[in-house]
Amino acid sequence: MKTPLTALALALTATAAFAEYPDKPVEVVVGYSAGGGTDVMARTVAQFLEQELGDGASVVVKNMPGAGGQIGFTEVSEAAPDGYTLGTFNLPAALALTKDRAADYDLDSFTYLANFVEDPNTITVAATSPFQTLDELIGAAEADPGAITLGLSSLGGNDHFAANMMQDASGAEFTLVPFKGASNARTAIMGGHVAAGTMTLGQTSNFPDELRVLAVLAEERSPFRPDVPTAKELGYDVQMSSLRGIVAPAGLDEATTEQLLRALSAVNENPDFQAMMAEQGNPIAFMAGDDFAETAAKQDGIAAQIWAETPWK
């Protein structure tokens, strides 16, 4: 606000935007198929965001699956920053794939609005596995480097980064086995075809009898599984998780950003929303605006570093 004139102009546009927005449906682009975890979150948020924006606002979810979410992320980054196109954003996946291929967007292509879900990675073995603790598993990996196979959902995602960071922190060497998707990796762990695996806590939650979670890769124990220690407690300071939030294209004007941030914060504070997310098994970790942008930048750094040190393709 350098001069009174620009201040006035800004104030005018701000009130104008405030009065008008949203005067047509707001689209939330989801880069995955309907029915998946990200889609369910988007639909839940959309439903409550409609209420918070008020005035008969309409928020619709648009699925644009393909290329590991890249089609959807690209769509959002290239949309007009007018507040009518929002998108779901998955960390670290969305930024990791800007490292290993030519993507049409990067860290700076988005206005970071709010993160809703954070699902921490775990180190997990089959319930029938001889490894009772994380130390036993790492001990075995140190004794015979590479003999311990570790199932992942894919390379270049949170599972892969978690495994890499675990190797760095412990000095042990695992053989990483990237399956096609988390459910295949989980089945292989349960069948004993790989010795262990890393997947998010949410992905283990339906299988308490078949899987043994050795550690959670988070700062603190999860309220969903307070019995499982964190890797940090066990001496390995590793944190990795899968995050899901809402972004807009870069260059969204301040007034609309403010309005959306307020509305999304109100969504998060709504007890009905909290109840619905808990029912879906989604651990909420709400971060708005700059906090979210900071986390995204940090995840971008981790992905860039791992890509530089051990490129996965």
Binding site: G68, S154, K180
Partner: peptide, 9 residues
């Protein structure tokens, strides 16, 4: 499509 392990096109 992308290969199942490394994701090369």
């Amino acid at each position: 499509g992308s290969d199942p392990i490394y994701g090369n096109d």
